[in-house]
Nucleic acid binder design. Structure first.
Lengths: 217, 217
DNA sequence: TTTTGTGAATGGATTCACAGCC
DNA sequence: GGCTGTGAATCCATTCACAAAA
């Protein structure tokens, strides 16, 4: 195990392996080879072995990986063996959908605070008894509760940087940002962007370039 | 201009440049250098020039890029000078939020069909007069309308591959997939995944590794 | 003089290929 | 015999540095 420099892409792939393993275990597959898992995840087998090698030696030569054991190791690596507490800002269509979406909750990501700038929404109760607070009360509300790990930005783009700043000020160091802008981020903090429009633009380009391609062959 | 092999990342960056340019133009900035734009997009200036060079020579040496002109060029490259017609499958919390989210519409991505497997939802009317049809009517509904360019999957993971297959069968060649699985995709088709959980797992890893780091210095 | 456009250099990540172990 | 773990080789993307153009 040499934790030197881990490619970001490795972490993302570990997340995929994790899901596939959950699935395999549900189907009572006790042992899986890098070959097999690679096939299922559509990556190169050596890639899987290399990804895992950054963190340790989890396999058995001549055999493969014990599914449950490997799942446990990846769980530890990613930090999925605990509850992550999240605060969401912006309870519009998207924000409400996120709170209602129980995939998060199932995977240990729990919403514990919700904020909006619209005072008519304040005190409304969402899924799991979550109560909406006014955005200006953010510092107080978060100060009064057990610490929150992750901030979720579901506001329009124009608000996003301001909201991010407020969240960082409370000590939150990581954000999931749904607004289509690049958030300026202080040292030691991390933002992950979920940007629908960029993805659509990629599809638009794909379709366009297929059409206008100079099909010579 | 040599359109040889364009890195996927280039397309994603063009999408960023496009947004920043829209913004700059709104602020009456007529000319922008790669230096300036790079600063705003947090990339290397040479990167911008190289990205653009795949498609042509859009700048003026000693001057920079004329904002409106460059915007127009990127619009053409990405194929944003037209309306893209989309069909969404799965009108749960997320699906409804997507249809209501008007950022799509503003950028030329229009929902023209909506499907769900829950017959109680059938015939309900959403934003812009969009009517929900039953998933089993998908082939007929799509056959009867002007062709649809992009399919959007907002179903639970278990349904996603089946839905994808049905969409591909109608001739749709690109999908935006919100389900947390890898979609098997036929030759000549493209799927873009929007995967919240993977992003959260990345944040979880970041926070975990910061905590357990062997802080030697 | 300024800033683009681009070959060359660098830096990362992926894949190959095989030694090492069960 | 079979599959992992890993240095070496390859591939791809980013950055540098400068010639060319306004």
């Amino acid at each position: 195990m040499k934790s030197s420099k881990i490619p970001p892409a490795t972490i993302t792939r570990l997340s995929f392996y994790y899901r596939k393993l959950e699935h395999l275990i549900k189907e009572d597959v006790n042992i899986v080879s890098s070959e097999k898992l690679a096939q299922l995840c559509d990556v190169n087998p050596a890639q899987i072995r290399k990804d895992l090698a950054y963190f340790g030696e989890f396999g058995v030569r001549g055999v493969g990986y014990y599914s449950t054991e490997l799942l446990g190791e990846i769980r530890k690596i990613l930090g999925l063996n605990r509850i992550w507490r999240m605060a969401v800002v912006g309870i519009g269509n998207l924000g409400s959908a996120l709170v209602a979406h129980d995939n998060f909750h199932k995977h240990g990501y729990h919403f514990v605070a919700a904020f909006d700038s619209d005072s008519r929404k304040v005190d409304q109760i969402l899924q799991h008894g979550l109560k909406i607070s006014h955005i200006d009360a953010l510092p107080q509300v978060l100060a009064e509760m057990e610490s929150v790990d992750i901030g979720v930005i579901a506001t329009p783009a124009g608000w996003a940087q301001d909201v991010a700043n407020r969240l960082f000020k409370t000590g939150i160091r990581s954000l999931l940002n749904f607004a289509p802008i690049q958030i300026l981020t202080p040292e030691g903090c991390m933002v992950q962007n979920v940007d629908f429009t960029v993805k659509l633009d990629n599809l638009a380009y794909f379709l366009t370039s297929e059409l206008t391609r100079d099909d010579p062959l």
